[in-house]
Design a protein around this nucleic acid. Structure first.
Lengths: 367, 367
DNA sequence: GGCAACACTTCAATCGATTGAATCAGAGGC
DNA sequence: GCCTCTGATTCAATCGATTGAAGTGTTGCC
């Protein structure tokens, strides 16, 4: 599970410890200076009611003046609490996750938790390495947007070992931990239904890792909306796996050469949608006029593009806040049994999804 | 410097420690099980040559089988090394920093360092809070893109207390720590000279916190290029402080109503440039035809926009790598005395900066 | 005066790994 | 047989904060 037999199981820190700098001030030093016990100093700094107010202020004043820096390693050793929480996502570069992260950090920071973040880049090994390291640091909890390919036993194993775990954004089937996510089926359905209502009948879906719950569910929502409207799903263009702006750009050739050519495109996320918008325009097909394009996540740039992008707002801040609250509850010792309900996203209709061009291609083409 | 007299100086962790889960396996437990001393176990796991190879493998096999998890808090207490490095930047949402961060993480991860990141959002207090927390966790080093308003004494104070510090991207005048940054004066000069060479004479600069070295220097580069060409700097539009896409969007009104109207715009960063492109097009002024727009950072989206954005490539990966190397060297005990030379950026010319429109406005207008 | 209650303060064990010094077993030399 | 040397292992102190238990001194009450 961890290192190969040849390698160290624990990473020895090379080089000399405490490279420079004098020995740091400890509780004991201050106790000596103030002629009290270390216990009193410890309690005073933490505002315990056990020490007299006058003593407490004297000690705190001294600590401040002397530049005392609390040693959390020492405290962590004794209390078995590190005040650190690990967050693993596949890509903080995605503004959507940056939003989630910000909310998490705000909420947890309030409780003096430090947030450690890792980009696992959808690489299970990277994710596992990061989790191993965090466990060594005895983090108080893990927030994970599981990499594609994550085994449910690994997640459950973590939970069983006693560490609070919360999954975000992506579900892992069979996991016995809370999952905070939005309802991707519903979100996709909203936006595809909107396209159908606009009159589109050739609606491609582009992108999404179908092995991840979000990729799977948005694809499902797309299918359900089509079926509901009596549209043949099998006749639609469906390109999986893409995730980035560059991917979206690259997909345009395939999109434009499809027969019949889609009159509308549902992109797995806004990044892909942005790539589509750029490359479509470059190809002479004006999005928002010649073709409808919808995104997902409603990230910062969506409203400001030309054309303004129709997208599904996922409520990343709500996801971050909810996940933070769940973590804190678990850390406080309350096991979370009921699963939080998926958050219902909101459709935001803008210029990029007009009705199909009247005399346009799409309905009948290639003839 | 830290808490107000009323508040705890150290944040007590509320709630019970070790909420659930059985006691974890320790070195001692394994020593007992294997009938050796804890010292042997400790040494074996770290591949010390002091233990016989056979013993070592026996111990490692047992540790693996029993699911032992190394406790770094305990080790940190003894060795005064935490294997954590803190990184403070103003905004990881900016893809530029995400790139820097990725390089840092890759390099430091190789040395078993965990990277803690914080968005200080250009708020000195937030930055200070984060640094205080990291010091409590006894991080091995700090990588800082200093918030606007950071006092040089605080940076030097950190360094003097013995902790390795490296500044990135922004300089803090008078700091006695290495600074890894690109040459912003040169970069700005390149791009503005390019605009001048295209024939532009009204070149606005938009954005950048002029209190930060990057904002100041890019502004300086802009001025120098203009002066060099004998263009009156004072007659140019210069809008400071903006930083985001939304800011760029909002600046367009001011840009278009300026007299004489600029024929070219130099944006402090790509985010602003993106905002400009969108809003200009919406206002009916086609960037790349009616007006030239150049960005800075050459982040992911720059090449794929329509029009493709001329930008200055800042080499974020090189910055990250260099900073990581400097940190590791300092942590290893080698004080870094010589300051690394600023990295020379590269101009990347694309479609967004054509020559001024022949019969266009700009030269004489408002008449 | 005696005793309990109370408010502080201190004692001392503890968390788990590290490491310089000490020990031990066996090989080799004289 | 005794001594030294070497390689492997162990001893035991240590890092710095926390905390249950024990110890002070004071006050209040009967």
């Amino acid at each position: 599970m961890q290192a190969a037999p040849g390698e160290p199981l624990v990473a020895s820190s090379r080089g000399p410890g405490r490279a420079r700098g004098a020995r740091r001030l400890t509780l004991g030093d201050m106790a000596e200076a103030l002629q009290v016990s270390t216990a009193t100093v410890s309690l005073a700094l933490r505002d315990s009611p056990l020490v007299a107010p006058a003593t407490r202020e004297r000690i705190k004043a001294h600590a401040l003046a002397a530049g005392y820096v609390y040693n959390r390693s020492a405290a962590a050793l004794r209390t078995a609490r590190s005040n650190m929480i690990g967050v693993a996502v596949h890509d903080i570069l995605n503004p959507y996750f940056a939003e989630v992260f910000r909310a998490l950090e705000d909420e947890l920071g309030r409780e003096n938790q430090v947030v450690l973040i890792c980009n696992h880049r959808d690489d299970v090994a990277r994710q596992q390495r990061f989790i191993d390291t965090l466990m060594q640091h005895r983090v108080d909890g893990l927030v994970i947007c599981a990499s594609v390919g994550t085994r449910v036993e690994d997640i459950n194993g973590l939970a069983d070992s006693g560490i609070p775990v919360t999954l975000i954004c992506r579900d892992v089937a069979g996991a016995r931990v809370p999952v905070v996510r939005s309802d991707d089926v519903a979100g996709a359905r909203m936006v595809v239904s909107h396209l159908i209502a606009q009159g589109h009948r050739q609606i491609a879906m582009i992108g999404g890792r179908r092995q991840s719950s979000s990729g799977h569910d948005r694809n499902l929502g797309w299918k359900l909306a089509l079926e509901e409207a009596g549209i043949d799903v099998a006749a639609q263009l469906d390109i999986p796996e893409l995730m980035t702006t560059a991917d979206g750009r690259d997909a345009v050739a395939q999109l434009l050469s499809a027969t019949p050519r889609p009159t509308a495109v549902f992109a797995f996320n806004d990044l892909i949608a942005h790539g589509l918008l750029s490359a479509l325009r470059r190809a002479g097909v004006e999005p928002g006029r010649d073709i409808a394009v919808a995104g997902y996540d409603d990230t910062d740039g969506a409203a400001s593009r030309t054309p303004a992008l129709t997208s599904v707002w996922n409520k990343p801040d709500e996801i971050g806040k909810t996940a933070a609250a769940l973590m804190l509850r678990q850390i406080a010792g309350a096991p979370v049994t009921e699963m939080p309900a998926p958050i219902l996203p909101e459709l935001r209709v803008r210029e990029s999804t007009p009705p199909p061009k009247p005399g346009g291609e799409g309905q009948a083409r290639g003839a």
